[in-house]
């Protein structure tokens, strides 16, 4: 066999190999149902395994949720300082409700270090504003 024939034969073999490989590439083995079932079982098991570690956390979740809600509410209002301010205002409101405005004016006068007469005539607004009118009415009673 001369060199030319050898080359031709080699090229022919290469073509045959390409044909064989092309045919093989079109052969797509069927997916065995049992294998598909195993693969899907694994997929399911993985989902379950990922969910499982969260279960103990879920058991202790109520306390965490309660703390979370309280924390959220506190944050929403403005924290513990805001809560103490609200509490003070509430107590003050209740006290005013029991003691009445007259007592309050006396107390306020005491706090401010002025006489109640001065307080009654103390007027931030000119003329016959509602506050002065109310105080005047109270004096007449």
């Amino acid at each position: 066999m001369n060199w030319g024939m050898a080359m031709a034969d080699r090229n022919h073999q290469a073509d045959e190999l390409d044909t064989l490989l092309a045919a093989a590439s079109r052969e797509l083995p069927e997916l065995p149902p049992a294998l598909l079932a195993r693969v899907l079982e694994d997929a399911e098991a993985e989902l379950a395994a990922r969910a499982a570690p969260r279960l103990p956390m879920a058991a202790s979740r109520p306390a965490a949720v309660t703390g979370g809600i309280l924390a959220d509410l506190l944050a929403l209002i403005g924290g513990w300082r805001a809560i103490s301010g609200l509490a003070t205002a509430t107590i003050a409101g209740v006290w005013i409700g029991f003691a009445g405005l007259g007592t309050l004016s006396v107390t306020a006068a005491d706090l401010l270090g002025v006489s109640s007469d001065t307080l009654v005539t103390f007027n931030l607004l000119p003329g016959d504003d509602v506050f002065a009118l109310a105080m005047g009415l109270e004096d007449t009673e």
Binding site: P29, L31, L36, V39, L40, A43, E44, A51
Partner: peptide, 26 residues
Amino acid sequence: LYGNGDRGAARALALRFTPLALRVAA
């Protein structure tokens, strides 16, 4: 989607990729 727990996506992936893996491994 499968990572988020979608079982339908798992099936689609299995049908799409198991034959590929099987073919190459074989």
